[in-house]
Design a binder for these strands. Structure first.
Lengths: 207, 207
DNA sequence: CAGCATCCGCTTTGATACTG
DNA sequence: CAGTATCAAAGCGGATGCTG
């Protein structure tokens, strides 16, 4: 990308990650950790393979991603975020929160992957009762399920929770609407979304 | 911009403001308030006039900017952010903070406008002694000077402060380095940067 | 002059085909 | 699996021209 040549942090950031697709590649690596090329491609549906190769190269030169050389011979080459790349999380959160308001009336034809939910969950949920200790909510809105760990802030992990304090399952729209307090459990259940566990957990984390 | 067609807040945000120049236009309006076309163009140096017109149109359709129809006939048409557009401030802050680390070794040929400093100032400074009441620091690193209001967080305004509690003047690099705690006052003064006022004010706001 | 629109060469993107 | 090659279409950048 051609530089804006402006002495301004916003412009400098966009010099590096302002290219089309770049931040979505960062999103994918930030959520899922190191990935092989083909998995990364599946995580950014719609990207052409030549563009993915281009972007990885550019991000690598800028020090945002690196190719993890595995010691194990024959192991697949993984692409991972550098520390500087991980530093983009606040940018992803801010964009995700702002863009999230468009999700409600987005076309049903949009691609969807369950792990993308971790960004609005981490960016929007709050722990309003930090004194109550740790609790885990499992969010099932596709594969994989997501663990939301409450206590000392909000953290998410991919994969099922060993012994969750609550489980919410349903389609992503309704699940997010419930978690963000835009829909009551009653209405959600009519839409096929179920919650098992203590409803206090929901009230604790709603923004 | 062609949509990414992904049910993800980050992708939706980039569908709207992911075009080249778009976020810099938002930056300009967010910092300076409503602007006429030509002033906006000067605030985004390097943009071609047809692209500025294109972007304004697109942002207008997306509900990010609006043209303020003045009641006064003959008054110039102003372009302003809508409320939704103002909501992009956290995005600008996150990008500015992340990209700010590239400013130290940016080429001297970069365009610079003093009001751009408000973003790193607001995004990075902290009020570490909220109990000490209100204080105002004036930052002079070009025109216009910037008021940094400390107390109940950090707020900035453009223009000189009526009776500041401190004034720091110098070139933008050194001034930022001092304010962000990367350089002591001693070294800064060798580089021609001066501070008048109580040094405690500096320590109060450094990140 | 402010506020664009038009034209044109160049670069980037998107889709697909192909390769070690 | 992990890319490269190719090519048409879209977008960008720069210059210039038009209109109130």
């Amino acid at each position: 990308m051609r530089s804006y040549d402006q002495w301004c942090g916003v412009a400098k950031a966009l010099d590096i990650v302002g290219d089309r697709w770049s931040l979505l590649i960062v999103r994918e690596l930030s959520i899922r950790g190191p990935l092989r090329y083909t998995d990364l491609q599946r995580g950014v549906p719609g990207i052409a393979t030549n563009l993915l190769a281009d972007r990885i190269r550019e991000l690598e030169q800028a020090g945002i991603v690196a190719r993890a050389i595995s010691e194990v011979p024959g192991a697949p080459q993984l692409i991972r975020l550098t520390e500087r790349g991980e530093g983009l999380r606040p940018v992803l959160h801010a964009l995700g929160r702002w863009g999230g308001s468009d999700l409600a009336d987005a076309p049903r034809t949009d691609a969807f992957q369950a792990h993308w939910l971790t960004i609005p969950l981490e960016a929007t949920l709050r722990d309003r009762k930090p004194d109550r200790g740790r609790a885990v909510l499992e969010v099932r809105a596709g594969e994989p399920p997501i663990q939301v760990e409450v206590g000392d802030g909000i953290r998410t992990r991919l994969g099922p929770a060993p012994s969750p304090d609550g489980v919410i399952s349903g389609d992503p729209r309704t699940v997010l609407a419930v978690l963000f307090g835009r829909m009551g459990l009653e209405d959600a259940e009519k839409a096929g979304t179920t919650f098992r566990g203590d409803p206090k957990l929901l009230r604790r984390i709603r923004p």
